[in-house]
Amino acid sequence: MAVTPALVDSHCHIVFRNFDDDLDAVSQRWREAGVQALVHACVEPAEIPAIRALADRFPELRYSVGVHPLDTQHWRDDTAAVLRQAAQDDARVVAIGELGLDLFRETNLEQQVAMLEPQLDLAVELDLPVIVHCRDAADPMLALLRQRAERGACPAGVMHCWGGTPEEMAAFLELGFYISFSGTVTFPKAEATHACARQVPADRYLVETDCPFLAPVPRRGKRNEPAFVASVAARVAELRGETLTQVALTSTSNAARLFSLPLHNV
């Protein structure tokens, strides 16, 4: 019987209500698929108690704390302090985020930056990586991160759910970021993402589901779940001309290094 290679779903959202009725079955499927660890992203502070409860329930789960760029209405004067306390209270917090910029759905760049900067500051203060959401906003994100890098205030992190060009990828790699591929890498028309998967250095990529969104082919349009990260890894392997085992070992090692995950044999 073939041994399933260990995988890390480096970005998921199983706290969402569409997992309420069958989460035990979902967890059984991710374990059967070889998912050894999950990193649960946070989109706003009200989620933190429920995500923490999931970490209590599933020992392989680690999580981030942060505010998504499309959730600026949840940013308050004390939000940075709330995130700091949450991160300091639980060693299972391994990142700040999901933070970033999104100019695909919104145009409030100034407001998003005003929320992004203190979260980046917090990541530097706590020496935690960031999980970056960047949609139609590569230029302003790169400008901001380069300015921070010049003064030694750019944290480590990952560009989650990568959908940019190879040129944009190279710029984020130069800043030290990892690149994470989601179900979009399985979409036939995602040619730029395919090119990035081929070109990204072996020590700088992760795989993720971003579930319940972006289910990979052949499940596109249905609810995504952590087990389907195996389909993402398989497509990355195909694009790179490697085996699934190679991609699983490499992406798992990269995720363990970035997020300080307590994994064995990586």
Score class of each variant (00 low, 15 high):
Leu206Asn: 11
Ala137Trp: 02
His133Ala: 09
Glu208Ile: 05
Met169Glu: 04
Gly163Ser: 15
Pro201Tyr: 08
Ala171Pro: 00
Gly152Thr: 04
Phe181Ser: 10
Ala137Leu: 00
Pro201Gln: 13
Ala137Lys: 00
Thr165Ser: 15
Val200His: 04
Ala215Ser: 13
Val132Ala: 15
Leu214Cys: 01
Gly183Trp: 04
Ala153Gln: 14
Glu174Phe: 03
Val158His: 09
Ala202Cys: 12
Lys222Trp: 06
Leu126Asp: 01
Leu214Gly: 02
Ile179Tyr: 07
Ala156Tyr: 04
Ala192Phe: 00
Asp127Leu: 04
Tyr178Gln: 14
Trp162Glu: 12
Thr184Pro: 02
Cys211Trp: 02
Asp136Val: 04
Val158Pro: 08
Glu150Phe: 05
Ala156Arg: 15
Ala192Asp: 11
Thr186Pro: 01
Ala195His: 01
Val207Met: 02
Ala190Lys: 09
Ala137Cys: 01
Glu191Asp: 15
Arg146Thr: 11
Met141Asp: 07
Ile131Trp: 01
Ala170Arg: 11
Leu173Thr: 05
Glu208Lys: 08
Ser182Phe: 14
Met141Cys: 07
Arg151Trp: 06
Ser182Arg: 14
Ala171Met: 02
Pro140Glu: 04
Glu167Pro: 00
Lys189Ala: 06
Ala197Gln: 09
Glu168Ile: 10
Asp210Leu: 04
Val132Asn: 09
Ile179His: 10
Phe181His: 08
Leu214Arg: 03
Thr193Pro: 11
Arg204Glu: 12
Leu144Gly: 03
Val132Ser: 08
Ala195Lys: 10
His160Gln: 00
Ile179Met: 12
Leu214Ile: 08
Thr193Arg: 10
Gly183Ile: 06
Gly183Met: 02
Ala171Thr: 00
Ala137Ile: 06
Gln199Thr: 07
Gly164Cys: 12
Leu145Cys: 09
Lys189Arg: 14
His133Val: 08
Ala138Val: 06
Pro212Ile: 09
Arg220Thr: 05
Phe177Ser: 05
Ala156Met: 12
Leu175Ala: 04
Ala170Met: 01
Gln199Met: 15
Ala197Leu: 08
Glu167Leu: 03
Glu167Lys: 06
